[in-house]
């Protein structure tokens, strides 16, 4: 009898700790629909999950490139961005996920330049797509909207937006929907590159040109992630297209000559750096080729 009581207690406490909440059950329904829609399954994963997560986390968000565009004096233009009106036509979770990444990049770009109205429009679109994918609960729409009203809140705004995207990603990974995390990341990277190429064509900056060339390093992190989901026909097609872009990026040559690490003090902060000469060989013709190949890929999912 005592042993039975012990077992009941053990099982009971385990259930309390691990049992799904109503929210989790609701989430599960969304996930099931999502999986059916995309025919995406975990079996597609051939790398251990920790390596998948490591690769996903190694890709910088498009925000870094957007900051550089502004720093080099590139002017804001909404011309290269994905019009918010396109979102209504995205009916599959593939398109919703990849364009959630695209619109996230556009939102970051508008935020960096304090383009309040554009930022709010993109924010609304992001919220809609996130809701459709069952991850809208991680997007603090009201606070972000409030912060977007003033340029004084830029850092807070960017921090919160980045954190919200991170939470969506964490949730997707946790729920075995890594494929959607990969798509969000890929969409954001493609859009970041698209906008950077547009700015580089309209604003002469060697630094931006070279940073675009350096994207071949990030692309090398993205390709194995796409390769893992080859069983899905949409991702398989995207992977094949990205292979073409990878070939173009192969023409970019990067030479590095490094010294020994040194530590300097700057504004009271101890900073380590390695004196380095890095040469990125990229011509305006090669930039055009990168831009056109990337546009061909992007056009397939933004329209």
């Amino acid at each position: 009898m005592l042993r039975k009581l012990f077992v009941v207690a053990l099982v009971g406490s385990f259930l309390v700790a691990c049992g799904p909440s109503q929210q989790a059950k609701d989430d599960f329904n969304v996930e099931e629909e999502s999986k059916k829609d995309d025919e995406l399954v975990d079996e597609a994963i051939s790398l251990p999950m920790d390596q998948v997560v490591m690769l996903l986390n190694s890709v910088p968000p498009p925000l870094e490139l957007a900051v550089l565009m502004k720093d080099v004096g590139g002017e804001y233009s909404s011309d290269p961005l994905n019009p918010t009106g396109n979102a209504d036509a995205y009916s599959t979770s593939y398109k919703k996920a990849i364009n959630l990444g695209v619109y996230g990049a556009d939102l970051g770009y508008a935020n960096i330049y304090s383009q309040t109205q554009d930022a709010i429009d993109y924010l609304t679109t992001v919220q809609g797509l996130a809701d459709d994918l069952g991850v809208g609960q991680f997007f603090d729409f009201e606070t972000i909207k409030e912060l977007a009203q003033s340029a004084d809140n830029l850092n807070e705004l960017l921090n919160l937006t980045t954190k919200n995207y991170e939470k969506m990603n964490d949730y997707l990974k946790e729920k075995g929907r890594v494929n959607q995390s990969v798509l969000m990341m890929a969409g954001g990277w493609i859009e970041g590159l698209h906008v950077a190429c547009y700015v580089a064509e309209n604003h002469d900056s060697q630094e931006l040109l070279e940073r675009i060339g350096e994207q071949k390093i990030t692309l090398a992190q993205i390709m194995p992630l796409l390769e893992m989901f080859q069983k899905d026909k949409d991702i398989s097609q995207l992977h094949a297209d990205m292979k073409k872009l990878e070939k173009v990026f192969d023409k970019v040559k990067i030479e590095i000559e490094e010294g020994e690490p040194v530590t300097i003090m700057e504004d009271g902060l101890e900073i380590t750096e390695i004196p380095t000469t890095q040469v990125v060989k990229i011509t305006p013709e090669l930039l055009k080729e990168i831009k056109e190949t990337n546009e061909m890929i992007r056009a397939k999912f933004v329209k």
């Binding site: 490591m54 690769l55 986390n57 190694s58 890709v59 910088p60 968000p61 925000l63 870094e64 900051v67 550089l68 850092n155 960017l158 921090n159 980045t162 954190k163 991170e166 940073r211 350096e214 390093i217 990030t218 992190q221």
Partner: peptide, 19 residues
């Protein structure tokens, strides 16, 4: 500016493309 968070609940390693 904030970029990413990593769990530190044991020894761990992560990778990132620094620019």
């Amino acid at each position: 500016r904030y970029l990413k968070t990593y769990d530190v609940d044991g020894d761990g390693e992560f990778s990132y493309v620094f620019s």
